[in-house]
């Protein structure tokens, strides 16, 4: 696998357009999904995806095969996205602070439980409305499957902060999903 990746990287570096298109086709979907969810904006994700691959093309010399090309691109995308979020908000933590201030984020005890199967479209829309800071942690943990230690490394935060961010995102999502009608009005808690 690594030998294949090294060969592909070399072909891309040497100007093989077909190889570079192959690299793009293989990874664009996953990276675009990641970027769309982390930024909450398809337009921003389109710009970032371009930046990721242009940056990758420039930096292919530095690819040594220590990880797969997919992992290498994934890290580039996460870093590019975080730089974007930082410049958009100056500090990711500010978004978290705004969430902290929302004391009513957690639903009241008597609120109806969410349905067992949440529609993807509802969840995508709700994720897009999360504040940047906790959205990034939620996407990396609950969508991408990173553990809290990995999320912490990716975002430059502690493992405990990652847990806190993800929890806040989930609580906010509960509210957002109810607001979207993901739960029938007047339904009773069924648990």
């Amino acid at each position: 696998m690594r030998a294949d990746d090294l060969a592909l990287a070399r072909r891309c570096r040497d100007g093989d357009a077909a190889a570079f298109e192959g690299l793009y086709r293989a990874h664009a979907g996953r990276l675009f999904g990641l970027l769309t969810r982390m930024t909450g904006s398809a337009q921003d994700a389109e710009d970032l995806l371009q930046d990721v691959f242009v940056h990758a093309h420039r930096k292919l010399d530095s690819f040594r095969g220590e990880s797969s090309l997919g992992t290498w691109l994934y890290r580039l995308a996460v870093n590019q996205c975080l730089d974007h979020l930082r410049s958009r908000q100056s500090r990711v933590a500010r978004a978290t602070d705004s969430l902290d201030e929302e004391g009513a984020a957690e639903p009241a005890a008597a609120a109806p439980a969410l349905p067992q199967a949440i529609a993807r479209i509802d969840l995508e829309r709700a994720i897009a409305q999360l504040p940047d800071g906790c959205r990034a942690a939620f996407v990396l943990h609950d969508v991408e499957g990173l553990d809290h230690r990995e999320v912490g490394v990716a975002l430059g935060i502690s493992e405990g902060t990652s847990k806190s961010q993800v929890h806040k995102a989930r609580m906010k999502l509960r509210v957002l999903l109810r607001g979207m009608g993901a739960v029938p009005r007047g339904a009773l808690e069924t648990v």
Binding site: R30, F32, E46, Q116
Partner: peptide
């Protein structure tokens, strides 16, 4: 009880989100 049910549902839904093909 509601939190556990809701978070379980959110986690399950999050894991089903798929790649998005760019334009």
């Amino acid at each position: 009880r509601a939190m556990v049910v809701d978070v379980r549902a959110i986690r399950a839904a999050a894991q089903t989100l798929e790649p998005i093909e760019p334009p």
